[in-house]
Design a protein around this nucleic acid. Structure first.
Lengths: 123, 123
DNA sequence: TTTATGGTTGAACAACTGTTCAACTGTTAG
DNA sequence: CTAACAGTTGAACAGTTGTTCAACCATAAA
């Protein structure tokens, strides 16, 4: 969701110094909604608990209890994060009796993780 | 950064149901620090203001004033975000008189944005 | 020197976020 | 049925975050 107390009208406190550049760049910017969606997607990955859960599920399908033990967290904390990952379709689940098995929903995660890992490694 | 009131000892509230799976996955997980660094990197991209600034700089080098006008934000707000992007080496700058020109520091941003854009597009 | 302006900075504030806790649901075992 | 347990959920709380505001620094123009 982001900070949602943005001003209704976009206001800045100066005149543009290079109007030509601003006009040109304005023409090249992606749709506002796309940039917001991208930020939203990145935000999901911007928490180490969620990253750890995703790496775990990348290795193997697991139930909440197992993830809980693996990461040393309560089932509740894990469940809350799984709900977020489920909402954005990054993980899926199947129920077997009282046990719920979670797994990655698609291959995107792996692609994005690889691209990011290179970036992190370089610094 | 992150939430820093984590418990000293990792505690969970159950026994593992599939010990073999947990053991196997534990062996495949990346270093804890790597996962934290990855989350940290994603966190930077997880804000639409920063994403918009990066897209703008991807198109052309710009001064704070121009970005300010382009995005309809105060110079202060832009400057604060540029400081964050500077700290993690995503943008660099050069001064000409009182004007500070910002630009992307490397090609990583473009790679990561491309990978993410595909993901966002699909939904 | 004085004034104006591009840009930075730190404090303050409201909104947001992740974990904890307790209560709860649903399924299995006795 | 009852007890146990995997998992979920919502409220509460402390910590974090982004924008605003005011003060400030540095350079350029007058």
């Amino acid at each position: 969701m982001q900070q949602s107390f943005m001003p209704e009208i976009a206001v800045c406190d100066c005149e543009s110094i290079h109007e030509d550049v601003v006009a040109a760049v304005r023409g090249q910017l992606p749709e506002e909604d796309l940039m917001i969606d991208m930020a939203e997607a990145f935000r999901i990955f911007g928490d180490s608990t969620r990253v750890r859960i995703l790496f775990a599920l990348k290795a193997h399908e697991m139930c909440v209890c197992d993830i809980s033990v693996l990461l040393g967290m309560t089932k509740s904390a894990v469940s809350h994060q799984l709900r977020i990952l489920k909402q954005v379709n990054l993980v899926k689940y199947r129920k077997v009796g009282r046990v719920v098995y979670y797994s990655l929903a698609d291959e995107h995660v792996k692609t994005i993780f690889s691209a990011c890992m290179e970036h992190v490694m370089e610094d």
